[in-house]
Each structure stands twice: as C-alpha cells, then as structure tokens.
Write a protein that binds this DNA or RNA. Structure first.
Lengths: 333, 333
DNA sequence: CTGTTAGCGCCTTCAG
DNA sequence: CTGAAGGCGCTAACAG
C-alpha cells in the first residue's frame, strides 16, 4: 500500500542506505546515484514515514507547545510565532491547551513525552516547580514562556512585568488619579505577582498607600474581571481608576463599567495590560501595556531549537520590554 | 534508559504479549497475571511509546486540525472544542495554521499524513476541490469545517450563512437603512460567497437594487476590512449602513469608521458576522450573527471520530444555525 | 562512496 | 488463557 524506502531503493537500483543518505542530504553519494534516487522518489511519489523515523532515532521532529488559555489573544500570537519558526526549521507543533489547570498541564507533558517530542514550550499554570525541575534533570529541552518558573535552571522568556505595571500605573497617577484599583490574575502565576508588585511600587513611589480593598485577584478570565470590577465600583468609596492585569480581565472590567452605565475616563480611568486589536474603541483614556507577543514566541522557539541542538548550553532568561501606549496623551482628570 | 514493554514483562514474569493485552484492556487474561502486570507497570513507571505503537498499527492517535487563521477568535473556539473531544477520546491534536494560504494548507496535509494521523479537520482555504477529493478517495478520514467543499462527498459542518446574512441585512432594512454596503471575504471561500448571497437576497426581497460600488471583497483580515470601509465612506454617495462578513473584517471596519470621526449608528449603522466578546462596547446599533463555534468544533470532531471508527459511513453535511443578536432592539433611523 | 545488517518498541497472528 | 516470533519503515554503524 504505502511506498517504502525499500521500494525506492529497488527502483533506483541501490540500497536503502543510499536512499536514506540522499534524503538526509548527506554527502558521499555519487551524483549519478543521487539523481537516480531522486527520480525514483519522484516517480513513486515516495514520502518517508516520520513515525518510523521517530522510532529509529528515538525522537520525533515535533515540538510541544502548552499554553494556558487558547482563547487569549496573547497566546494566539505566541502560537503563531512558534509555528512559524518551527515550520521553517522542519519541525511541527503540537498544541495543547492547559486551560489554567495544573493537572491538565502535567497530563499534556506526559503525553508529549510519550510522543517523543524534541522539546517543550510551556506557559506554566502555577509555581509547580517540581515538574519542571524533573524535566530539566531528565535533560528534556524545555522553555517557559510568559510566566517564570522559580529556582529552576531553565530557559525562559518573559516580559518585564514589574516595570511595565509601574509605568502604566505611574501614568495614571501623573494624570491626577489617586484611588487606583488593581484587577489582577492569581499571584501564583509569576505575571500576577509581578504586576501587583509594579502597581504597589508605583503607588509607594508617589506617596500613595495601597488600599487592600482596591486589589482584586482571581482567575485571569473575563468573568473574574467582571465580578471584581463590579465589586470595586459598588464600594462605598469607589476607585477613580482601574488597572487590569490581563487581556481577559480587561474585557470583563470594561463590560462591568459599561453595565454600571459609567464612562471611561470621565467616571473611571482605565489602564490595561496587553493590547488588543479593538482597543481603539475605548481610546479616550486608555493606557495600554503592549507586549511583543510574536517576538516572545519567536524567541522561545529559537531558544528551544538551540537547546535541542546543544543540550549543554547554559540556561538563558530573556526579559523582553513591553511598550506603553497612551492612546490620548495625558488627559488630566 | 527508557523502560520498555519487555522490562515490564520480565518484572511481571510474563511475556510481552500479555503486557500488551493488559494495556489494551483485552479480555482473556487471568486476573492474577493482570494484577502482576499492572503492578510492574506502576513500579517501573512504564509509559508505552506512542511512536512505536503508531508504527506497528500504521496509525497514530493524533488528529490533525488545520485552520485558516489562528488569530481569529472564531477558530480559537473551534480549536478548543476539537481538543476537548479529542482528549476525552484518547486522541491528541496537532494544530496547523494555514494562514489562508492554499500552499501551506497542502503542505500541512502532507505533513500530517506523514505523521500517520488518524484523521483531519480542515477549514479549507479555497475551492481547491482536488486535494480533498484525493483524500476522500484515499479513504483518509477528513471533515471540513466552516467552509464548504463543493462536489466532494465528505463530512462537513458549516453555518447557514445565506440565511444568517439575509436576516441580519433585513434587520438593517427594517430599521430604515437603504444604502447598505457589504464588506466581505473573498468569494472563493464558500462563506464569503454565501454571505454575499444572503445580502443580495435581502436587498432584492425588499426591492433594493445591489449597487456594485457598495460591495467590497478581500482577504478576511482586518487590514482589508479597514481599507474597504475607508473607500466606502469616502464615496460620493456613501452607505448609511455597513454589513461585515467576518470577525476580522469587522474590527478593521470599525477602526475605519472611528478614524473618519463617524459614530455608530448615528452616521453609519452596522451589522456584523461573528460575535466577539468585546462587542458590548459598540452596542447601541449592533446586530450580530453569533455562530455556535464551540458546537461546530465539537460536531466536527465527533464526525471525524465516527468516520475513523467506521470509514464506510455515508458523508454527512451538518448545517448549524447561527443566532442573530440585536443589542438594542429596532432602532429606527 | 555504497551495501548489509541489526534493531528502535510495540502489536498480533499462530501455536500451544 | 499465554508465549514466541515476525515485522512496521527507517537509520546508523560496520564492512567492503
């Protein structure tokens, strides 16, 4: 049924070894033979079995990509980047969606290892350091993206969350806002913690005390952002500005503001992490942290391929700088 | 290094055949043995090699998913659904992004076949019927999603685009709009063509003639929607309403309207295909076609698994009904 | 430069 | 009910 390397060898009048060499582009094959083989391949429409190859070399040319939320445009862009560089280097990508569940994440890691993937790119769901330490010890090429894995010597590419949050919150302060709320993701993802830290530092630097009442943390999902924001807005002493720490939280927060019949920025100012394409719709008072998502994915893929090629390279931690975009410059309160 | 089925067999004092049977959950194994095997597996922390298995049975338990644009939330939701049902049935998903390129699509199909995938789910980039006919003839389980493949007896799950477009455009007409423009995707994707047809029918049914000047077609991307809309808005006799035929086109169109300093619906009314989560932001005059995206992905995956199990089942064409959502009821001009 | 050969880890007849 | 043995398609020594 399927045409094998043997068929090609026969047709070209050579051994399977030679065919294999030609396919792999190895040197030391007479041109005459090479051509005969190439012809045979063409005529037979031969396609090597990647499965057989994987079994033989004990490694597939697949790289596993585990992201924590495929509905988040942030990751969507990462996926694209990873796919682009992988494809260009002869790898394919197996995408898995851990859905912010540590269990799913672990299960996917096992699955991908069972598939003999060459390496893993993961946006870790939690500070579950163990699982990663084990991978590193087992010499499995793996790089963390977006979220940091503490105390584990592995490649990672993350954004400078502290700095970005600091800047964006400072911008709100500079525009006269004082009661600034924070709607954040859970602090056990490094991003949540770091964005909080930037927020706190900005307030401190400007002599404002953090009001715990104004800080909300939850799953980085729109429902959570919605709920938190409603609560904030219904406070005795509501915030005059809101800082959201993630794409999806932003959507939920904006919806809540809308439902309350309030306007941005007249009633509440707004600053958000992660830019989305439609944000021009709320532009009058939007300060946004735009992350180089494609670049992050690209870098992660490159690090991974690099490590696959040279497992002994020391781990690298790449810190990418987000950009602060102010849609309408300094709009005083 | 890796622990094989042989190691397990040895440890349990049985043959590899028995171990294999136990793993496959086959009957005819004495309970005593079964338990010993299970224990050995546990103790050795044995994980079967999916690669070796794939080679042996000439089929991997991967299903390939090729979508035309991973940045489009429509597909994002489909991916999620496919992954959910696949995982639950013991399959994994290999995701590929054809990026609206027929060449990439073809290349990915080849790649996936080389990986011996059990089946394919594809949102076809064009009316490239040949490639699909060949797959069907080769008995490769494949189902088309979102976009139709003409004259090819294969499974597909699509939305009722004609009807939905008809309704949504009719709604604009009912609200007093007459010069209704259409910003659509290329007509060689069935969705583009069908949505145009619904648009045309709606106009005809209400005695309005189609003005070719008001119909724009291009890649289903935001840049294209942006460009088309700018052109429309700068016409001598500009439209009083715009109908967009896709998620990304909608974003581009709204941006164009915004840039021109116009408002929705006071200056131009708006109706769009495919709902997005943030649409509440423009709600005053938004009529939206909401597709059951998750359901579509789920159905596609189910059809595929079904066909994998029974390749002879006659092809099925599932037509899912979109929902028309009117954010604010009949707002007269 | 080229061919021979021995598996990679698993499943599946075919005999017991 | 259980074991022995033969590949699946390919690559990587090892000999020529």
């Amino acid at each position: 049924m399927t045409v094998t390397i043997e068929d090609v060898a026969q047709r070209a009048g050579v051994s399977t070894a030679t065919v294999s060499r030609v396919i792999a582009g190895k040197p030391y094959v007479r041109d005459a033979l090479r051509i005969r083989v190439l012809d045979a391949i063409q005529e037979l429409n031969y396609r090597p079995s990647r499965v057989a190859r994987s079994l033989r070399v004990q490694r597939s040319s697949i790289i596993g990509l585990i992201i924590s939320d495929i509905q988040n445009p942030f990751f969507t862009s990462v996926v694209r980047a990873v796919e682009d560089v992988a494809q260009q280097r002869g790898f394919s990508v197996m995408l898995c969606n851990s859905d912010e569940s540590t269990d799913k994440e672990a299960a996917y890691i096992d699955l991908l290892l069972d598939e003999q993937v060459s390496g893993l790119i993961v946006s870790p769901t939690s500070t579950n350091t163990d699982i990663y330490r084990r991978l590193v010890e087992a010499n499995v090429p793996v790089v963390a993206i977006d979220r940091r894995v503490e105390n584990t010597p592995m490649d990672m590419v993350v954004g400078d969350n502290v700095q970005a949050a600091y800047e964006v919150v400072s911008h709100l302060i500079a525009n006269g806002y004082r009661r600034i709320a924070a709607v954040l993701g859970v602090p056990d993802a490094s991003t949540g913690a770091e964005r909080y830290e930037g927020y706190e530092r900005a307030l401190n630097a400007h002599g404002i005390e953090v009001d715990p009442e104004l800080v909300r943390q939850g799953m980085p999902r729109s429902e959570s952002g919605h709920r938190s924001t409603l609560q904030l807005l219904q406070l005795q002493n509501p915030p005059d500005a809101i800082f959201t720490g993630n794409n999806l939280l932003t959507i939920g927060a904006l919806r809540a503001i809308d439902e309350m019949g309030l306007r941005v920025p007249e009633d509440v100012a707004f600053a958000a992490f992660d830019e989305m394409e439609w944000m021009f719709l709320v532009k009058p008072a939007l300060t946004v942290v735009a992350q180089p998502t494609y670049a992050m994915g690209k870098k992660a893929a490159e690090l991974l391929l690099q490590r696959i090629a040279d497992p002994s390279r020391p781990p690298q931690e790449v810190l990418l700088q987000p950009t602060i975009k102010v849609h309408e410059s300094s709009r005083a309160k």
